[in-house]
Amino acid sequence: MKHVEAARLRVKAVVEAKWFTTTVLVVIISNALILGVEAQLDGGPVEEVLRQVDHVMLWIFVLELAARMFALGRRFFRDPWSWFDLVVVGIALIPASGSLGALRALRILRALRVIDAVPSMKRVVSGLVAAIPGLGSVGALLVLVMYVSAVIATELFKTAAPEYFGDLGTTAFSLFQVMTGEAWPDMAATVRETVPGAWIFFVLFILIVSFAVLNLFIAVIVSGMESIEADIQVLDKEQDEAEAEILTELRAIRAELAELRARESTNAA
């Protein structure tokens, strides 16, 4: 058992070393570039060589995950990012032949492991995940506004511009284009030929959806990232306080040892 623990500590030191994480990051980026070049080729010896290199890199990822699992033990499975790495590499290990040939395109998902390897990107994604509950509420509000607007626009403009507002589905797609700022002047010009006051609807819709509701998405995401940054600052502060407390205790121990040595010297004299 002691030998296993000693080996685990040695593997953990390697896995957490700066050179190891940098090497894994370089392999991830190189693998993504190779997959991109391979996607451009259509057979030939070069593609076969790249495919062999891809297999070697895949087994490097497998060995890296195995080393992390051995070093961290049960803690490995408590980290959501570890599960993310397992899923991404596991998909790449599925034989991509026959009916599963489409899975070959999913090999590029391994490039997403850069998120786990780069702390700043990891914090950004963590902020997005933290913002999901708020994004759900804003998304529900957007769907509600879009539905109400689609019903109104269909009732008002289906005769004037049936190609844009002929039915509820067509209207919803047209309003989605308006929301993104794409081709809405053409729609408005077509409708205004029959309904001169249609500009009021388009102006109100753009103000409500594009300038208000969509900006709520940005606000929620920023709030989520700020909460993550605040948590990180709290953790850093706690860590600094713990380190300062340890240093204070070490200094006190040193002072006591120095005092004891001084007493022993005095008694000896």
Rank of each mutant, 00 (worst) to 15 (best):
V114L: 14
I29H: 05
G98E: 03
T22P: 01
A96K: 12
A105K: 12
I94T: 03
H55Y: 11
R51F: 14
T22H: 07
F70L: 00
I29P: 02
V62E: 04
V14F: 13
V88Y: 03
R110S: 13
L72Y: 10
L112V: 09
I29V: 15
D79L: 07
Q40H: 10
T21E: 10
D42T: 15
V15Y: 02
M121R: 04
V125W: 12
L128P: 06
L128Y: 13
V89Q: 02
I60L: 09
V125D: 05
T23L: 14
A13P: 05
L128I: 14
L65Y: 03
G73H: 00
H55E: 03
I115F: 04
S97D: 09
E16Q: 10
D54M: 12
I28K: 02
F77I: 09
A17L: 00
G127H: 02
W19K: 06
L58T: 07
K122S: 14
A32W: 12
V56T: 09
I108C: 08
A130M: 12
V49Y: 07
R104P: 03
L106K: 09
I108A: 12
L65H: 07
F20M: 12
A102V: 13
L106R: 07
R113W: 09
V62G: 00
V114C: 11
M57N: 15
S126H: 05
A13L: 08
D54P: 06
W83N: 02
R78Q: 04
A32F: 15
A105C: 10
F84A: 05
S97Q: 10
A96N: 04
W83Y: 04
I115S: 00
A102K: 11
L33F: 15
R75T: 05
L109P: 05
T21A: 13
L86R: 04
E64S: 05
V14Y: 12
S82T: 00
M69W: 02
A96F: 00
V27E: 00
L103Q: 05
I34C: 14
E38L: 14
G44N: 11
A17Y: 05
S30T: 15
D79F: 06
V53P: 12
L93C: 12
I91Q: 03
I108P: 03
D79I: 08
